[in-house]
Design a protein around this nucleic acid. Structure first.
Lengths: 306, 306
DNA sequence: ATAACCCCCAAGCAATACTTATGGCATGGA
DNA sequence: TCCATGCCATAAGTATTGCTTGGGGGTTAT
């Protein structure tokens, strides 16, 4: 059964004549006539009676018209649904992000997105970068927020595109009572070398690797006493004087223990935050708008553009 | 929304890859690939993600697939319905017939039809020939049984086909006690001239016209005392000796009053029974089968053929 | 009677649909 | 590691399809 011809037949049935259908289709009459003839040959039965003032449906034609109407309705429904997705009255984005971004960056972006497109549905899943990549590769999420530290070159998956969303500076975190906490103006970098005898707190696997690399650049090997990938725990330990550590600005934006002081330090290289998505993301409205919202959250529009 | 491409997309979605869809369609891979590209361009969104081992649906693709499946189901349902009509597991025929045919011929044909195609639905409407033609012309019935007397040439409507179904002999009907009722062997024609002084009973308008013509051929003008188009009434009148008349064999097959005798007579010309249908009737299975059944009822198959 | 409205058929041209040919990329086994 | 195999895409050529043009027949209304 040829769906296209079925819809032409529907036009014929509704307009009551072949010529009428041709008019409403913007065609000539023989064009429609030929389609009808082919359709009737295919089904092996007459679908209409040709009468002087137009056509009249046979029983088979009546039966077929019902189906044709149902199909036309479905096609319109499909158009409407796709239109809703295109105009972002609906649409889902599934996003995987690492913890500190999930806490600080993503909520802001989601809020911006909800404001722009109230009908959209954003779903966040917290995941460390390697897992986030897997989720993206298996299609469980549409977007992944990851980070790399300086010198790290990211593992790439086929079919995925990586764009730099921004830089996340790494800060030195000290107890409020620490001698270096207020030794100089807040914006003057601390020399890490002076902290080589401190007890340090490591973070996640890759953060700890970064800590080791940074200290090596500064000329010493840190004495890592504790390890946690939870920046609340890290700050709690620091506030109690159990060690000092490095934390990215995103984590500090998300949470700040009043018992700690944050300082910039020499040799601290920022980590890079990446946004990863499918090659086709530009052509998926919901994903595209989410990407835009994330970008706009990281680098807000210059003043004057509403 | 292009229904054809939508169904191709459905194949892609179900087979999980463009190449797979091409295989199941018997096409080459680029053919399917191009259709998908055109569809995606039309809807303005990506419908699938191209991944190394095949494709994966986007949100829009998932939405579209539901509609595509619904449409495919409808198309199959349409095929099934038409198939039922083609094979006469279903189907309706609306038939208009004049009274004596309705009583004698049509029930036999309907019974034959029911035996051949138990699922069929035949609907009879009794109507005199002129009305039957109108019903056919306005599409209220599919078939009309009419008759014409000798010399009458039938009014033709455009788009309708008239075929001769058979001849219906006209008989002389006398009271059982009438002098001519048994005056000679039953198959010897009576000379109408001998009945010129009788009282006659007329039938319907056209039957009465035929009576007048017949008598004129025989050389007299009949004395018509009563008129009825009901052959039961006619026979009741005759049985009571209130007149004599002419009746077609079909009417006598349908009903025979024991008080009358039927004779053949010279100059009596049979009436012709016509079957009228649309030009397209051959291509409407239900109508075609009804036409066949009527023919087979009038001229039964020669012995030896089941 | 002529105009207007149906419908059909046949032939020609233009758009579309499919094939062939080729290349890139990812995976899995020798 | 390299090659074989699977997926996909693009470009160009051909073949089919689809629509138009230009006939003609028929019925109805002015």
């Amino acid at each position: 059964m040829d769906a296209h011809r079925l819809l032409i037949f529907r036009q014929i049935a509704h307009s009551g004549s072949i010529a009428g259908a041709a008019r409403s289709l913007g065609w000539t009459q023989p064009a429609v006539s030929q389609h009808l003839r082919h359709l009737e040959r295919q089904v092996g039965m007459a679908l209409v009676l040709r009468r002087p003032r137009g056509i009249q449906l046979t029983e088979a034609g009546t039966v077929l018209l019902r189906h044709a109407d149902a199909i036309a309705t479905r096609l319109h429904a499909a158009d409407d649904d796709l239109d809703a997705l295109a105009q972002l009255r609906e649409g889902t984005v599934r996003l995987a992000a690492f913890p500190s971004a999930s806490a600080a960056l993503v909520p802001a972006a989601m809020s911006l997105l909800a404001q722009r497109h109230p009908g959209m549905d954003v779903r966040l899943r917290e995941a460390e970068p390697p897992e986030a990549l897997d989720l993206l590769a298996t299609g469980e999420v549409d977007l992944a927020l990851t980070f790399t530290h300086a010198g790290e070159h990211p593992a790439d998956h086929p079919g995925l595109v990586r764009v730099v969303l921004g830089e996340d500076p790494v800060r030195l975190v000290l107890p409020r009572s620490h001698p270096h906490a207020h030794a100089a103006p807040p914006d003057q970098p601390v020399n890490l070398r002076l902290l080589s005898e401190e007890r340090w707190i490591g973070g996640c696997e890759r953060c700890t690797a970064n800590l080791l690399q940074t200290c090596q650049d500064a000329g010493f090997v840190p004495d890592i006493r504790h390890s946690t990938d939870d920046y609340v725990v890290t700050q709690a330990l620091i506030a109690r004087g159990l060690g000092i550590g490095l934390l990215p600005q995103l984590a500090l934006d998300a949470f700040r223990n009043p018992g700690v002081t944050v300082r910039v330090a020499a040799k601290l290289r920022p980590r890079t935050v990446h946004l990863i998505h499918h090659r086709e993301a530009d052509h998926i409205p919901a994903v595209r708008s989410a990407v835009r919202a994330l970008h706009d959250t990281v680098s807000p529009l210059p003043p004057g553009s509403s």
